[in-house]
Design a protein around this nucleic acid. Structure first.
Length: 545
RNA sequence: GGGCCUGUAGCUCAGGGGAUAGAGCAACGGUUUCCGGGGCCGUGUGUCGCAGGUUCGAAUCCUGCCAGGCCCGCCA
């Protein structure tokens, strides 16, 4: 139980004793200024009006009746804050507990209803680009944070391998393939084809495997085979890039399977049964506007084929039937309208509105030589995630991607990212970790053979370091419940800074056994938390740099 | 026109009712008998987009404006 929670209980009890009132919301927090104590509460200020006393008087009374074994000092300050200073023994006990838990510190065992977290889900029509990189980094880190906070999370990638874009992609590769043998491939719309060099690469791989066999069979059959080959090729390519940047998934779901199992026809039938499907202009419409969407959506086109609406609803109904009770979709900001219309479709089927949650990741604006880089996958002028990783490395990329809130648009200055890569904050955090590793190497002891922490007065730098360490569980829980990963880097940078400050002022490996043991314990605890926090971001914690 | 998001230091961004608004980068100065100086310390910079409102207290909540981004397809 955190000190915040324990102090809040003690304060609540003091209020009950003094005023005979039960308060439900008692806020205890870490003050910005260390001279305001280790923790502080504003109860007196917040409730002065209800109690009809002036805030300072209330605070004085509460301090008088407050009982808590780990509080060394409680004082009234400013307009009526109560500032607490804890006893060193209580703080060090917590550090001891932290060391005992090791890598599990601040993390909980998974409980509760299963959560499905879907991210990236880029079409298998080409390599991942830098925009996908942000979604991948955010999604994977969010998955790690949710799991650490005890959510029962399952990570999923939806391969959109059944729609219009995939057909165009297949044609694009077919054109290249035919071209390799000096032949032409008929296409409906040459301007819509994918122009990237990778289509040529896929065609060459195909030619190597099949020679010109596919040019001598029925074109429809050939296109089907070529498309299958191309999407398989793309999926492998995407998975390879994701593995490189340490982004994991528990499952991959193929859109095509919805066609093959008949789930699509089934979903249309079910929607019709609810009475929310009607015909207009030759198409079948779903009345999503009845369930919170701006307007109705086409479910089945005039030519009898499906829009993306039916597969998406079928897919999410499948998530529901697999037992998930929350589905979080991490999507690019250009999918802003996706949530409401998909949710509307699900509600029409009787699935609760709060089942689906969408986290929109803002776009990555690429800047090179002061100019914004415009890119498009079809035009082929994309900057791929692999290219970025080649330039800045996996650690820098992952850290940089999640350092700012996913809700804000991000400027990725390629020149700056390369030039400043050794000044990136990730190195600052990693350096603290490597520094501690080197202390233990020199000390010749492992962090696991520390034993009891000798109690004693804590220097200001030690105290601030301890308080920061003890904040980690709260940081994880907040990040999970707010689904905001960027608070992890912020925390790690503060923690690294606290350690560097401590290290500069206090020598760890001193002769006095008590002091040495205590400082080794603080260092070991910091190392554990830094590694654990970096792991939440998929970033390495090196022993040496 | 409607919906969602954003506006904080020269730049990139934290802070999302609390005390004197912070960090990194950039600039300048200091710091080395001794655990990694990729560190630490200090100096300077802010109409927290603007205007009202709620409150003991607002960068934070509410309303209205201004500016920027994304969306509003029988694409996904």
């Amino acid at each position: 139980m955190s000190f915040e929670a324990r102090l809040a209980d003690a304060v609540r009890e003091a209020v009950r004793k003094t005023y005979g009132v039960d308060l439900d919301g008692v806020h205890v927090e870490r003050p910005n200024d260390p001279s305001h104590g280790d923790f502080a509460t504003n109860v007196a200020l917040a409730n002065a009006r209800v109690l009809r006393r002036n805030p300072r008087e209330v605070a004085e009374n509460l301090v008088g009746t407050l009982e808590s074994p780990f509080v060394r000092e409680a004082e009234v300050a400013g307009p009526g804050f109560i500032n607490f200073r804890l006893s060193p023994g209580a703080l060090l006990d917590e550090v001891g507990a932290l060391l005992g838990e090791g890598a599990r510190y601040g993390r909980r065992e998974p409980t509760g209803a299963p959560v499905n977290l879907e991210y990236v889900s880029a079409n298998p029509t080409g390599p991942l680009h830098v925009g996908h990189g942000r979604q991948a980094a955010f999604g994977d880190s969010l998955a790690r944070v949710l799991a650490a906070a005890g959510r029962n999370v399952s990570r999923e990638y939806y391969f959109n391998d059944g729609g219009n874009q995939v057909r165009l992609f297949g044609e694009s590769v077919s054109v290249r393939y035919a071209g390799l043998f000096g032949e032409e491939w008929p296409v409906s719309d040459p301007d819509a084809l994918y122009k990237g060099d990778y289509t040529e690469e896929i065609a060459r791989d195909l030619a190597e495997e099949q020679s010109r066999r596919l040019l001598d069979i029925e074109p429809d059959d050939a296109l089907q085979e070529i498309t299958a080959f191309a999407t398989r090729w793309s999926m492998e390519d995407i998975k390879r890039t994701l593995a490189r940047v340490r982004v994991r998934f528990d499952s991959f779901f193929n859109e095509k399977s919805l066609y093959e199992t008949g789930a699509l026809k089934e979903i249309v039938r079910e929607l019709e049964e609810t009475g929310n499907v009607y015909e207009s202009e030759g198409a079948q419409w779903l009345a999503t506007s009845k369930f919170g969407d701006d307007k109705d959506r086409v479910l089945v086109k005039g030519d009898g084929s499906f829009t993306y609406v039916a597969p998406d609803i079928a897919y999410h109904k499948d998530k529901w039937e697999r037992g998930f009770r929350t589905a979080v979709n991490v999507l690019g900001a250009d999918h802003a309208g996706y949530g409401p219309r998909l949710r509307a479709g699900l509600v029409a089927l009787g699935i609760p509105a709060d089942f689906l949650d969408v986290e929109l990741v803002r776009l990555v604006k690429l800047v090179r030589e002061g100019e914004q880089v415009k890119f498009s996958k079809r035009a082929g002028n994309i900057v791929t995630l692999d290219e970025l990783l080649d330039e800045v490395g996996e650690d820098v990329a992952r850290y940089f991607y999640v350092r700012s809130s996913h809700k804000t648009e991000m400027n990725f200055d390629l020149d700056l990212a390369i030039r400043q890569s050794d000044e990136n904050p990730v190195f600052y955090v990693q350096y603290a970790h490597a520094r501690i590793a080197s202390i233990f190497e020199r000390a010749g002891t492992g962090s696991e053979s520390l034993g009891e922490i000798p109690t004693g007065e804590l220097a200001p730098e030690e105290r601030l370091l301890v308080l920061e360490l003890l904040d980690f569980p709260r940081v994880i829980e907040n990040a999970a419940s707010r689904r905001e990963v960027h608070s992890i880097p912020t925390y790690l940078e503060t923690l690294a800074s606290r350690f560097h400050q401590f290290y500069t002022v206090h020598r760890v490996l001193v002769d006095a056994a008590d002091v040495r043991a205590r400082r080794l314990a603080l260092s070991a605890a910091t190392k554990i938390v830094l590694r654990s926090g970096l792991d939440l971001l998929g970033v390495n914690a090196p022993e040496k740099m």
